[in-house]
Design a protein around this nucleic acid. Structure first.
Lengths: 209, 209
DNA sequence: GCTAGTTTGTGAACGAATTCACAAGCCCGA
DNA sequence: TCGGGCTTGTGAATTCGTTCACAAACTAGC
C-alpha cells in the first residue's frame, strides 16, 4: 500500500462522522460535493482521499451511505475492539475514563494506572485504578494495543519508555511535552497548550499580513 | 508578512518549550542542531522556521537562549495576557479550568458558562460558573479574546455561532464535531476521537505497506 | 434505446513545505 | 592578526499534498 498522508486519515474520520449522521437519518446516498461542504474541503479532495483505498462510488449517483461508512470504519480500524490502558488517574485521566465516545467506537478501556496510593484500588466509572508497579506484568497478560499518557509532563518520557518496552505500538499523549519513540511506535499528541499558542499567534499576527 | 504555515507555528511552540527548560538550567546558547534533535525535526527546518521572523542566531555559535525564547514568546503572542472564557462546566471544562499551564502562560480564564441550573453559581477552582444566558452581555462588558467550547457535539455549532456573533475571533473546540465559522475567526480543534482513529488506522495498516 | 444531466475516478498541473547544500560570518587559539 | 572549525541563513532542488479538468460511467425521463 502507498503511504497515506496523515491529513487524509484525519479527513476520513471527519467524513465518517457525517456518514454516521446520514445513516441515522436514513439517507441512502451522498455525493463527494456534499461530504466536502460539511467537512470544509473540496469534492476533488474527498474523491482523492477515497481513491487511495479503492473505488466506492457510482458515477452519476454518488456513494452509498451504508457501504461507504462501513468501508471507512474498516479502513480506520473500527471494525474490531481495541484494548486501551490509561496512565494517570488525575483530572485528564478521569475525564477520559468517563468519555462515552471511547467504548462507543470500540476502544475498550481496561484499566487506569497511577502511583498515588490514595487512588490505587478505587475505581473511575467502573474502571479499576491499578498500581503503576503492576503495569508491565498486566500488559504481558492482557495485551492492550493502545496506551494513553495522562500524567504531567515531567514523568511522561519515562512512562513512554516503559510503554515501548512492553511492546505496545500506539500511544496517545496528553502530556504537554514532545516525546521520542522508535519509528515503529506511533505516538499522537493532544496538546492544548500548543493549540492555544496557535490561537494567540493568529490573534497577534492578524492584520500584519 | 508572508503567510506562515500552521506546522511552523506548532514547531515554534515546541522550540519554546525546550528553550524554557534550557533557561531554567542556565544554559546560555543552543544550536539549531540541538533544538532539532529535541523537537524531532532537522536543523535546516529549525533555521528555516526562525528565518520567517528574523535572524536570531550568531554564525559559528548558535542562538542565545534568553534572546530566542523571548523572541518566540513575542511571536506566539505570549507577551501579553489573554482573557479566556470556557463554555461548558462538564468534565472537560472542569479539567481545563484547573489546568495550571493556562494561567502560567498568560491565558486568564475569566469565567465558565453552563446552562445547567445545578451548576450555575458554583465555582471551579475559584472560577465562577455563570448562566449561559448572560454570555453575550458578559462578553460585551469583559471583552474576552478567546473562547473554549467544552460541551458535547450536539450543541457545539450553535454555541460557536453565538461566540462568532459576539465578535470573538479565536476559538478552541473540544467537541468532537467539525465546526464552521467565517474566515476571520480562527477555530482550532482538539479531537481525541480523531487522534485515536489515527492510531487504530496505523495499527491496522502497519505491515501492509 | 437514446439523450441530457450528473458525478465519479484519476492523470496532470500546481502550490506548499521540507530538505539540500553552501557561502557568509563568527569565535578562539596561536 | 590570521587560519581552522563551527553554525547560521537562504536560494535551489526536491518531495509531498491539493486542485484542476475531463473522460468514463451511471440514472432517469421520454
Amino acid at each position: 500500500m502507498k503511504r497515506i498522508a496523515e491529513s487524509t486519515v484525519r479527513r476520513l474520520s471527519i467524513y465518517l462522522r457525517f456518514l454516521e449522521e446520514f445513516e441515522d437519518r436514513g439517507l441512502s446516498t451522498v455525493s463527494s460535493e456534499e461530504l466536502a461542504r460539511r467537512g470544509g474541503t473540496t469534492s476533488a479532495q474527498v474523491r482523492k482521499d477515497l481513491s487511495f483505498f479503492g473505488s466506492f462510488g457510482k458515477r452519476g449517483l454518488g456513494y452509498s451511505v451504508p457501504e461507504l461508512s462501513s468501508a471507512l470504519r474498516e479502513i480506520l480500524g473500527l471494525g474490531r475492539e481495541w484494548r486501551v490502558v490509561i496512565i494517570g488517574a488525575g483530572k485528564i485521566g478521569a475525564a477520559l475514563a468517563q468519555y462515552r465516545g471511547f467504548r462507543q467506537r470500540g476502544y475498550n478501556i481496561i484499566a487506569v494506572y497511577d502511583s498515588n496510593p490514595e487512588k490505587i484500588g478505587r475505581s473511575l466509572e467502573g474502571i479499576e485504578i491499578r498500581d503503576m508497579a503492576r503495569f508491565e506484568s498486566d500488559v504481558a497478560a492482557e495485551q492492550p494495543e493502545i496506551a494513553v499518557i495522562a500524567i504531567p509532563g515531567e514523568g511522561a518520557q519515562e512512562v513512554l519508555d516503559r510503554i515501548v518496552r512492553t511492546g505496545i505500538k500506539a500511544v496517545l499523549n496528553f502530556a504537554p511535552v514532545q516525546l521520542h519513540a522508535p519509528a515503529d511506535v506511533t505516538v499522537k499528541a493532544v496538546n492544548m497548550a500548543m493549540e492555544l499558542e496557535g490561537l494567540s499567534f493568529a490573534l497577534t499576527n492578524r492584520e500584519t499580513d
